[in-house]
C-alpha cells in the first residue's frame, strides 16, 4: 500500500519528493482570504521542469493545464467535485496515469461512467472520498470496497473528508484504523491525505495495525 500526501506548492517546500501530490494551482477556494492570483499552476510548474526526479503527481482542475505537462509528473489527480467535468476527464485520458477522486455525490454506477470518459488511459486509480449525507463528515459506504474489488478497479481512499467532525489535534485513531484496515482487506492500494498533523497519526495507527511502513 502506498501513502500519498497532497501538498500545496509553497516556497518553503520546494524539494521535489516522490510521494507528494502537488496542488500547484491552489485550485480550490478554502476561504475568502485566499490569494486572488491567477495562473499559479503555470507559474509553479516552472519549478518542476528540468528536475531530475519525476514527482508523483499534480492536482489538475482545468483541461488547458494538461497540454502544458510533459514528464514532470507521473500521475494526474482529479479532485472529486470535478469528477464529472467531461472536458477535464477527456484531456486527462491521454496521460499515462490518472488518479480520479470519486465525487461525494456519486453512486457506484456513476464511477463507471466517469471511467468511460477517461478511456484510453489504462492506469486509473479511483480514490474514494466518501459520500455526503447532509451536514457533517463524509460517510464511507463499505459496500463500495467490495464493488471496487469485484470490478477490479484499482482504488484507495482520501482520509481527510472522513475526519471533519474532529477538531484539529484530536486523535482520529478509530476512524483511521477502520479506514486503513478496510482498504487493505479489500485490495486497495493507495491512501491519500493532507496535513502534516495527520502524518504522525497515520504512522501511529500503522504501528497499531502492525503495518511497518514509513510515510
Amino acid at each position: 500500500m502506498e501513502f500519498y500526501q497532497i501538498l500545496p506548492f509553497e516556497k518553503d517546500n520546494q524539494e521535489v519528493k516522490k510521494n507528494i501530490l502537488w496542488d500547484i494551482g491552489q485550485w480550490k477556494l478554502v476561504s475568502s482570504k485566499d490569494t486572488q492570483e491567477m495562473g499559479l499552476f503555470e507559474k509553479n510548474l516552472k519549478h518542476f521542469q528540468h528536475q531530475q526526479i519525476q514527482s508523483l503527481g499534480v492536482v489538475v482542475s482545468s483541461p488547458h493545464q494538461i497540454p502544458l505537462l510533459e514528464k514532470e509528473f507521473s500521475s494526474l489527480y482529479i479532485p472529486g467535485s470535478l469528477s464529472r467535468q467531461s472536458d477535464l476527464l477527456k484531456a486527462c485520458s491521454s496521460y499515462p496515469q490518472v488518479i480520479l477522486e470519486k465525487g461525494p455525490f456519486m453512486a457506484k454506477e456513476d464511477i463507471l461512467y466517469a471511467l468511460e470518459k477517461l478511456k484510453p488511459c489504462k492506469d486509473i486509480t479511483v480514490i474514494d472520498a466518501g459520500n455526503v449525507f447532509g451536514k457533517g463528515p463524509r460517510i464511507f459506504d463499505i459496500r463500495l470496497a467490495y464493488f471496487y474489488e469485484s470490478k477490479h478497479i484499482p482504488w484507495g481512499i482520501y482520509l481527510n473528508p472522513f475526519l471533519e467532525e474532529y477538531p484539529n489535534g484530536d486523535s482520529f485513531e478509530e476512524t483511521l484504523i477502520s479506514l486503513i484496515r478496510t482498504v487493505k482487506e479489500f485490495g486497495g492500494k493507495k491512501i491519500v491525505y493532507h496535513g502534516h498533523y495527520l502524518r504522525s497519526q497515520i504512522q501511529t495507527c500503522l504501528q497499531v495495525i502492525g503495518m511497518e511502513m514509513s510515510l
Binding site: 485550485w27 477556494l29 467535485s81 464529472r84 467535468q85 465525487g103
Partner: peptide, 12 residues
C-alpha cells in the same frame, strides 16, 4: 454547483 469552489473560475 460542481464548480462553486473553483478559485480561478470565480476570479474570472
Amino acid at each position: 454547483a460542481f464548480l462553486c469552489e473553483h478559485r480561478e473560475l470565480l476570479i474570472s
